[in-house]
């Protein structure tokens, strides 16, 4: 047993951030913070759920077979201490900001849960109007053609462009008079040149050349409405 295993039990990382990110990418797991852009609350919720599952799995083992975390003096044995906040900082966070109670986060871990949640959402849509504006993200695996890897934070656009997106939807007077709005071609070389001409449905979070697959492997997040 290497001497640094005790440090790993205590929550230290075994490898560097770049190597750990590559390992997580190869194994298909989510990696913080690259895989969760601007979703810190959702990530915290998901990590708490993971910790709960790990602790339940640990408590299901017979007591003689469990790892005794008291001997190893692990403060948070089921999470990693460097990026997960401790119980003390969580209490501080909850007392200082009350935004966490307002926003309700839903964790969906399987296709069955996703269909159940969509059905429940469709039933509640008539009674509760605010639920209709709920947008939830699905982690997707991308299969790009070609050999070049995708940039992180690249835009995922839908392939089929709806008609109202091409015409100006904000132009209400044209919609009243039912006049077809011709899409304007922006001159090249200005700010509008880099605006996407298709509706953006998601973002790429990580992309590497995978040696186990022999091709580019990429992950990202898209809106669930675009998948279903």
């Amino acid at each position: 047993m290497a001497f640094w295993n005790s440090f790993c039990y205590a929550g230290a990382r075994g490898v560097g951030l770049r190597e750990r990110r590559f390992l997580y990418h190869e194994s298909g797991r989510c990696h913080f913070p690259e895989d969760f852009p601007e979703c810190r609350d959702a990530y915290r919720c998901w990590a708490q759920f993971e910790i709960q599952i790990a602790s339940e799995r640990w408590s299901r083992r017979p007591p003689s077979k469990r790892v005794n975390f008291v001997i190893y003096r692990a403060p948070e044995p089921f999470g990693v201490a460097d990026w997960l906040e401790t119980a003390l900082s969580l209490q501080k966070h909850s007392t200082s900001t009350e935004e966490a109670s307002v926003t309700k986060l839903v964790i969906i871990r399987s296709c069955k849960d996703l269909t159940e949640y969509s059905a429940q959402r469709a039933n509640l849509q008539h009674s509760l109007s605010f639920l209709s504006s709920v947008r939830y993200l699905v982690r997707v695996r991308l299969h790009p053609c070609g050999r070049a890897s995708l940039d992180s934070n690249a835009l995922i656009c839908s392939a089929d462009v709806p008609e109202e997106y091409l015409g100006g939807t904000s132009d209400q007077t044209a919609a009243e008079h039912h006049q077809p709005v011709t899409p304007l071609e922006e001159p090249r070389g200005n700010v509008h040149d880099h605006q996407p001409t298709r509706p953006v449905i998601g973002r790429v979070t990580s992309s590497h050349y995978s040696w186990s697959d022999g091709c580019i492997r990429a992950y990202g997040f898209v809106l669930a409405d675009a998948i279903c």
């Binding site: 969906i108 699905v138 997707v140 991308l142 299969h143 790009p144 053609c145 835009l155 995922i156």
Partner: peptide
């Protein structure tokens, strides 16, 4: 679906596959 880098104008075609446990 299509993927476009932030700084480029070229779209690349990709296939999406949802990752769920």
């Amino acid at each position: 679906a299509l993927v476009r880098d932030v700084t480029s104008l070229v779209y690349r075609e990709v296939r999406l596959e949802p990752v769920l446990d």
